[in-house]
Amino acid sequence: MDIFILQVLNALFYASILYLIASGFTLIFGVMGIANMAHGSFYAVGAFVTAWSLGFLQSRGVEPWLLVFFLPLGAIAVAILGMLIEPILLRPFYQRAHEYQLLLTFGVLLIIEDGIQMIFGSDPLLVDMVIAPFGSLQIFSFRYPNYNFVVIGTGLVTAFLLWALMYRSRFGVVLRATSQDMRMASAMGINVGKVYVLAFGIGSFLAGLGGAIIVPTQTAVVGMGLEALIIAFVVVAVGGIGSQLGALIGALLVALVRTAGVHFVPEIELAVLFLIAVGVLLWRPTGLLGNAP
């Protein structure tokens, strides 16, 4: 029983991070139609900026409990980075074939990965001092860090806020209109360029937030973005590309399967994950909640 609860909590923790990455990816794809290969690198930048900033602040004597308020720094940095990349690099390619966009965003991925090494070095960064002030909770025979509940809560709150943004706000209406027909949207007075920058900024922020909140529990290492990208692809493919609810369900499913895989068949846990994705895609080629093109 203890192990079961622990594994469920671990799965929820992992699902929260996956949801943050995948929801940003699917938002950008849904609005702009771009499969952003650099999205995993945004997650990595979020982790590195947060880890470096918190380390710097700690060295200046800031109390560990105060450091938690600076966690979103990485996400904000990534949002700014995304809002610069979209109009300068991506926008000229929207009218081009998808392979150009894939090549371009893959190039951005490589630049960011090298940029991370150049700026932060190759050594792993960890800021686990943030976890201790939260304490831990006794659940049966094991203690579970409260910080992990913060991560799970962040995923849930983000899912709610994204839903509210998309379906209960003026910007959401504009975003959905633009994602459906950008020409007609512009003829209705919508500044499509501005909507694209904001959507890309929000999508990037979500990936950065994933990196920022995971870095107290896992080290920020060079190459972490690539693994995140691959798993995010699986989440989005399973949930249905362009669907926020699909991203949430996909993240939960992938996290549960991977956690169970690690526990029962650790040798082939990734293979199990991809087999599940293949199974879902064979059954529903557009993913669980994706719409047929």
Binding site: R170, V173, R176, A177, Q180, A187, G189
Partner: peptide, 14 residues
């Protein structure tokens, strides 16, 4: 050119 993911009211409000 209606936005089919939106209601009539939302189409108008835009």
């Amino acid at each position: 050119g209606l936005f089919s993911s939106l209601s009539v009211q939302e189409n108008l409000e835009i």
